[in-house]
Design a protein around this nucleic acid. Structure first.
Length: 191
DNA sequence: ATTCTAACCTAATCACACC
DNA sequence: GGTGTGATTAGGTTAGAAT
């Protein structure tokens, strides 16, 4: 019998039930009315805050910076900020606003606003991460938290590391598959 | 049940150091 | 000039809480 595999499109993983049990999301944070007010206000000023701006917000509303980042991601995805022509009502704002300019040139804003400075992992930290990855490429919040503690790096960085690792493994596999296919086709032609 | 939305994901890309 | 890789984006999915 084929068991429980094929998790999330094409990264194949077999997870034991007990591993799945500890597979858990971080508990949902509920922002207070006041926090939301500040976030929404900030979003209207700039839907693409840089790292320092997010940090400032984080201390202001007493939340983790990573939660702020997620909040802005979700907000941009849903509440389309200053979408194109608002249906056809209110023709009063058909002129270019700063934000619209930003939308035209997505690359500009990113370089203008500062990024979080790149964390450089030591080789031993990387070894720990890689070991954990082979064991489970989709660690839940508990595992990530534990790993973060172990190697002394914020949990959010661990999460990003796993995302990047999974992505690169996927493209690597895809490339390998394509090469194999190409070789097979060539073989058929040559001989 | 439906609605809202935080958490999480992928895919693509940016940024930047290094060779 | 490429390669490697952390950070960010758009946009889709999952699931917890309020209605």
């Amino acid at each position: 019998m084929a068991h429980l595999m094929l998790l999330s499109s094409d990264l194949l993983v077999s997870l034991s039930p007990e591993t799945m049990a500890t597979q858990c999301r971080r508990s949902r944070t509920s922002f207070t009315e006041e926090q939301l007010k500040i976030l929404v206000q900030a979003f209207s000023q700039n839907p693409y805050p840089g790292y320092t701006a997010k940090q400032r917000l984080a201390v202001e509303i007493n939340a983790e910076e990573s939660r702020i980042q997620i909040w802005f991601q979700n907000r941009r995805a849903r509440h389309g900020f200053l979408k194109r022509p608002k249906k056809n009502l209110d023709p009063s704002k058909d002129h270019a606003s700063p934000i619209e300019k930003i939308q035209e040139e997505p690359g500009v804003l990113q370089s203008v606003e500062n990024r979080r400075c790149r964390t450089s992992f030591t080789s031993s930290q990387l070894q720990t991460l890689k070991n954990a990855f082979t064991e489970n490429p989709y660690p839940g919040i508990d595992s990530r938290e534990q790993l973060a503690e172990e190697i002394g790096v914020p949990e959010s960085r661990v999460q990003i590391w796993f995302q990047n690792r999974r992505a690169r493994l996927r493209v690597q596999r895809k490339r390998g598959l394509e090469e194999a296919l190409y070789q097979r086709q060539n073989q058929g032609q040559d001989l």
